[in-house]
């Protein structure tokens, strides 16, 4: 019962455009507001591969030690997963839940969601079944701040270097690698391809 098959709308300014006869390998922008109306993404196999790589990198990056801090004779090693527990012990529950969510949990969840969207689609499920995951993914896209988290780790390293002796441990390198792969995955994945595929 689709009413307007040959038309396409710009989601940012509401302009109704004629659907161009281009294949799904070119991107085009809205003539009025210059928003990207269609952007092409990589094929599903590449995305699944990249997602799995980032997921594998995720586990060492949260469990391996991130930093070692030394003041006089006292030494302290921190891992990302410990940061969560220390917050709870100190009573900053609201802020801590929020920070852990947007810094660690949401990036991880988004990668899982990509798998939940793409694997059923590859196995021939219908688009309607995965649209719930897709809506959640679209919503979380604005709340993932892993790259900000990484930069803040560097800022606090510089800040703490004045106070004490710091050693960067392997966990930080894994975390960097994880973020690079996640960033590439999210940018390569174009969720709107799910809707375009059945029209080609």
């Amino acid at each position: 019962m689709k009413m307007h098959q040959n038309k396409i709308a710009c989601k940012e300014c509401g302009l109704i455009l004629k659907k161009p006869k281009a294949d799904h390998t070119h991107q085009f922008t809205c003539p009025r507001c210059k928003a990207c109306v269609y952007k092409f993404g990589q094929d599903y196999e590449t995305i699944i591969l990249m997602t799995l790589t980032s997921l594998i990198l995720f586990f060492p990056s949260i469990t391996l030690p991130l930093l070692t801090l030394k003041i006089f004779e006292l030494e302290q090693t921190t891992t990302l997963i410990e940061t969560v527990f220390i917050f709870f012990d100190n009573g900053y529950i609201g802020v801590s839940i929020f920070i852990t969510l947007i810094g660690i949990v949401i990036p991880f969840l988004m990668l899982l969601l990509i798998l939940f969207i793409l694997i059923p689609l590859k196995n021939g499920s219908s688009h309607k079944k995965v649209s719930g995951f897709f809506k959640l993914y679209e919503y979380l896209l604005e709340w993932q701040m892993a790259e900000v988290y990484l930069l803040s780790i560097f800022v606090s390293i510089i800040k703490l270097n004045k106070m004490a002796t710091l050693h960067v441990e392997t966990g930080l390198y894994f975390f960097c690698a994880f973020l690079v792969f996640m960033f590439i995955t999210i940018n390569f994945f174009n969720p709107y391809d799910i809707w375009n595929k059945n029209e080609v």
């Binding site: 930093l67 801090l69 003041i71 006089f72 006292l74 302290q76 921190t78 410990e82 940061t83 220390i86 917050f87 100190n90 900053y92 802020v95 801590s96 920070i99 947007i102 810094g103 604005e142 701040m145 900000v148 988290y149 930069l151 803040s152 780790i153 800022v155 606090s156 800040k159 703490l160 106070m163 004490a164």
Partner: peptide, 28 residues
């Protein structure tokens, strides 16, 4: 928009990393 979260993250991380009891500690 999200880059303004950086200062919050820095404070949070400093609290976690610097936990030396009476010697040095950081609170928000």
């Amino acid at each position: 928009g999200k880059w303004s979260m950086i200062d919050i993250f820095v404070v949070a991380l400093m609290i976690v990393i610097v936990q030396f009891g009476h010697l040095t500690s950081i609170s928000a």
